[in-house]
């Protein structure tokens, strides 16, 4: 769980207004990369939001994760432009390399693989974003190389 002081700062930043709950959750997720249950319960109590509503919000919006995410975040774009250029093949290659499927995180919390609707950089499609860095005009072999390079840089840090 986050330090109470950090949570309080986040709440204050958003004027303790339940209408700003999405921004509050975004800030919590920026701090810890996911939404831990204790933090959500704390926010529920402070802002008088029923836990059932909190659960509805946290599961409705794709940006939120109720499970810890990996150290490295891989986003495979599945927008239409990437799709017609073979994005599914690229996703398959990444899934095989990391041993996880789209939407999953590996057991060692090293890798999270997410699929996104469109990153709006269609000229570079198919696109894969690894830790915020864009890799364009991907092929399955290129995608695998990008992942291998990161794994190697971390000294055989096994992904899967």
């Amino acid at each position: 769980m986050l330090e109470t002081a950090t949570l309080e700062q986040i709440l204050e930043r958003h004027e303790r207004d339940p209408a700003n709950i999405i921004a509050i959750l975004q800030d919590i997720q920026t701090e810890v990369n996911w939404l831990p249950e204790e933090d959500l319960r704390y926010v529920c109590a402070e802002l008088e939001i029923p836990p059932s509503k909190m659960m509805a919000l946290a599961t409705f919006y794709r940006a939120f994760s109720l499970k810890p995410r990996g150290k490295h975040i891989v986003q495979a774009c599945l927008g239409t432009a990437c799709h017609v250029r073979g994005a599914v093949r690229i996703l398959g290659a990444i899934e095989r390399d990391l041993g996880i499927e789209g939407g999953q995180t590996d057991e060692d919390l090293q890798w999270t693989l997410e699929t996104v609707g469109c990153l709006g950089a269609c000229a570079l499609g198919p696109i894969v974003v690894v830790d915020g860095e864009y890799h364009g005009q991907m092929t399955s072999a290129k995608a695998t190389r990008v992942l291998q390079r990161i794994k190697k840089a971390e000294g055989n840090g096994s992904g899967a």
């Binding site: 999405i22 921004a23 919000l57």
Partner: peptide
């Protein structure tokens, strides 16, 4: 400025307003 939460349906006007009010979109 308000940032969305990654829900396509929030581009629909009434859903967007729900989201601005801190609800499910």
């Amino acid at each position: 400025i308000r940032r969305g939460g990654g829900a396509f349906v929030c581009g629909e006007s009434s859903a967007l307003m729900q989201s601005l009010q801190g609800n499910v979109g």
